[in-house]
Design a protein around this nucleic acid. Sequence first.
DNA 1: TCTGGGGTCCTAGGACCC
DNA 2: TCTGGGGTCCTAGGACCC
Length: 414
Amino acid sequence: MFALADCNNFYASCHRLFEPKYNGLPVVVLSNNDGCVIARSNEAKACGIKMGAPFFKIQEAIKEHNIAVFSSHYTLYGDISARVMTNLARFTPEVEVYSIDECFLGLSGLEKLADYGTAIKETVMNNTGIPISVGIAPTKVLAKVANRTSKKFNGVMVLETAAQIADALADYPVEDLWGIGRQFSHKLIKGGIETAAQFRNLPMDWVQSNMTVVGLRMWRELWGESCIPLKTILDPKKGMCTSRAFGKLTTDYNQLKEATSSYAARLGVKLRRERLCAGVISVRLLTNKFGPEASQAYPAITIPLEHPVNNTVDLVRVALQGLKKIYLRGYLFQKVEVTATGLIPEQEVQLNIFSDFKGVKHDKVSKVLDRLNMHYGAGTLKMAGEGLKQQWTMKRQFLSPCYTTNWNDIIKVR
DNA sequence: TCTGGGGTCCTAGGACCC
DNA sequence: TCTGGGGTCCTAGGACCC
């Protein structure tokens, strides 16, 4: 049996944890650049605020219902997530942290599953203050169904017998199944398939040929056959990307240079943290996709490196070479993406007989950079090319204090 | 004015091998 | 008139996830 533990309205709950005056009131959390809604408290959902709604389109509702608004704050969520996961790991050695707010648990050999689920839920609430829901079932796809259904009741649901499963699937919307996205749900609903039960009754061949082996796996899981194992060991990463929309669109080459340098440097920090080196760097510029057709451009370049690296100096240099080649005058760019692929572990990097790699010095500089920034705070020391004014940085108008990452913001208890 | 960021997996098709 | 059979590797594109 599998359990899926899922934090309720996670980002909104994180903010409430430090500002309990918002308990019971509508709260929304915005995406980067305060672009759109990515988390809502139950009260905000009840006000009709939709997931993904652009912030500028819901101003009236915000005012009308007096909804509290927060910019997203990922360091905070990361810290709270770690607390939740640590508590979940006390219940079983079989743990798969599936996302920042979700965790699969292997519950093989256990009895009284409903009681166990309740114990998990209450422990996490007591120890972290974060409300969670627990769904328990023989497969991961069914555990997802159980979890989602549980939110309508008391937050714990076990689907074990064939009758319980059939009952839960009977009116479960097909588009809410794990693995059914926009495209497939559209196709299915057009064909009259609206519930999970109807989907499960489709012939296997149809599912296989229309939805590939991925769809078939999901279909089998709905019949109780476990096809998606618990992943307790993380796969090595295949790619790593830093991409962020600017606070303001720009045509200015110098601003793009600053942003590209800054994103490449950030990528370096992420690579070094995981002790990986990049063999290939890609850079892409993007215009605002909501703008008129004629103003669109997505120039990109992929640059194989002679020598895999993770030091900031080399990464920034290569990324800027790429930018120079792809830059187009006259387009209003909204975003730059810097991606690392061909990742290999640091200690497996081979010297290339034909390259005159002189990165050893740069590697040392990066180590010093990381140490200083760790001690004095991110951004204390950076490359000159990242710029001082940084007019392109993202908008975060409703940022909460850094309760868990800045001594000055730590919460005071009287 | 304003519309997120970071990933995974699968398939088809082309280039290449013997 | 007719033009093999098996592979691997890579990339682009499309689907999905939170």
